[in-house]
């Protein structure tokens, strides 16, 4: 298990190293734009949960970036599968589906941590610093695991690169904007809050924001993310096996 997982992870890391500069710019552009655009638009007067908007926004951006970076491995897996046929090299190797899935998930989590580091650095450049304790990092890691597992599962289930774009447009992008990243959910009607609490990103954003603001953790968010992580991993395992034609 470990040898296969290590090989899959190492391959992704070597490729990331080759594309480091491009990846760095890609990770930095969106959060930077959000910070500039929304930070300027909302000004410093408005208060959200007792904090400036930039202070409120930063943990949301961290949750969102963790999601997009971890989920981003779906595109890499797709390209490797449909265009470069590298996935066949893994299928023909004596490694389990779990080893392949874990190697890819770990690479997604590593990318997510890279994205978080960039946002924290951008925040510091804007004069915004937040508390980053163990509960903060646990929420980040759980969120990354959930979306990386989902990425592996969906990358195996879809049959073309076009399907991937549809999933991004209808699932990931709406979740990025509605999952408590840019605005507090408290002002929404009860039914909308209930609906948005079905999204993993909502729980990640609230868990990360709580620790960032120095509040005690709400364990329900961690429990939901852990449960979704297990479900995502099981789905990933089944999908890897199903990918044999």
């Amino acid at each position: 298990m470990l040898q296969g997982m290590g090989a899959v992870y190492l391959r992704e890391m070597r490729l990331s190293r080759r594309r480091f500069k491009r990846a760095l710019v890609g990770m930095a552009v969106s959060p930077l734009l959000y910070m500039v655009a929304f930070g300027t638009a909302m000004g410093s007067e408005a208060r959200f949960e007792g904090h400036t908007y930039l202070e409120f926004l930063l943990p949301g951006l961290i949750a969102m970036t963790t999601m997009t970076q971890a989920y981003g491995i779906a595109i890499e897996i797709n390209i490797a599968r449909f265009y470069f046929h590298i996935f066949e090299e893994f299928q023909a190797a004596p490694i389990s589906g779990a080893a392949f899935a874990m190697g890819e998930i770990l690479s997604g989590m590593t990318r997510a941590l890279g994205g978080v580091a960039i946002i924290l650095a951008i925040g510091m450049a804007f004069g915004v610093t937040i508390h980053t304790g163990p509960w903060f990092w646990l929420a980040v890691l759980l969120n990354a695991f959930v979306f990386a597992a989902l990425a592996v599962a969906l990358a195996m289930l879809i049959s073309s690169h076009g399907d991937q774009s549809l999933l991004n447009a209808f699932v990931i992008t709406p979740m990025a904007f509605l999952g408590g990243t840019f605005f507090p959910l408290d002002g929404l009607p009860g039914w909308a809050q209930g609906l948005l609490h079905a999204l993993p990103l909502t729980h990640a954003a609230q868990a990360i924001r709580a620790d960032a603001f120095g509040r005690p953790p709400e364990l329900i968010h961690y429990a939901v993310l852990a449960a979704l992580g297990v479900a995502g991993f099981v789905l990933a395992l089944k999908s890897v096996d199903r990918a044999r034609d």
């Binding site: 070597r14 490729l15 470069f84 590298i86 090299e89 004596p94």
Partner: peptide, 29 residues
Amino acid sequence: KRQCGVVMQHVNLDGDLSLAENMDIHGRL
């Protein structure tokens, strides 16, 4: 699978990795 090597009809190498890196990943697998 441990007993066999396979060369597929289409190229399935990692173009962004070196020759040695492609060999190394295979050996690790």
